[in-house]
Amino acid sequence: MGRPTKQELTEALAEAARMREQGQDPNHIAKSLLNHDYRLKLLEQLYDQVEHYLRSGQSSTEHSKLTRLMEKVRSEERHPGLDSH
């Protein structure tokens, strides 16, 4: 098994979007894939921002950016899907 290639992931996400648009997602697999992709990208942004914050000497500007991104992640946890797509 293993990770999908970039091409495979692109194709899977496109198919998931098509399935959702056409109402062909009876088991919510496409919805789940799209949501997980969105959340993974959000968490990757958070990781990058934490790294930047630490490298910046923990500046107040970078702290503010990190705080805003953390709130976005929290908001997604409280209200899944409102910020996605």
Rank of each mutant, 00 (worst) to 15 (best):
L43H: 08
H28C: 03
P80K: 14
I29N: 14
D25S: 05
S60Y: 13
R3G: 10
P80G: 09
Y47F: 11
R20L: 09
Y53L: 13
E11V: 00
A16E: 00
N27D: 15
Y38C: 11
S32Y: 01
G57E: 04
S60I: 13
G23W: 04
E15I: 00
L40C: 11
E21W: 00
R18V: 07
R74E: 06
E21T: 03
E21M: 03
Q7I: 03
S59Q: 14
S75L: 11
S64T: 07
S64H: 01
Q58H: 05
K65C: 03
L46N: 11
Q45V: 02
T10A: 09
S64W: 00
P4E: 09
T5F: 03
R78G: 06
D25M: 05
E15K: 03
E21I: 00
S56M: 02
L13V: 09
L42D: 10
P26W: 03
Y38T: 09
M70R: 10
A12I: 08
R74M: 08
R55P: 01
P4M: 10
E77S: 10
G57T: 08
E51M: 07
R68K: 15
K41F: 02
A14I: 01
V73I: 11
R20E: 13
E15R: 04
D37C: 05
S60L: 11
A17C: 06
H79Q: 13
T10H: 04
Y38L: 08
L54C: 14
T61K: 13
A12N: 06
Y53G: 14
L42P: 07
S60V: 15
A30R: 02
Y47I: 12
E77P: 00
A17S: 14
K72R: 14
T5Y: 02
L43K: 10
S56L: 02
N27F: 05
S60E: 14
M1T: 05
T61M: 14
T10R: 08
S56R: 01
A12P: 02
T67E: 15
S75D: 12
Q45H: 12
E11N: 01
E71C: 05
S84N: 12
L66N: 11
I29A: 15
Q7K: 06
L13M: 14
L46T: 13
T61F: 09
M19C: 09
H36W: 01
L43G: 04
V50N: 11
L43T: 11
H28S: 07
Q7V: 07
D25V: 03
M19Q: 11
M19L: 08
Y38F: 05
T10F: 04
S75Q: 12
H63T: 03
G81L: 02
R20S: 04
R68W: 03
M1V: 04
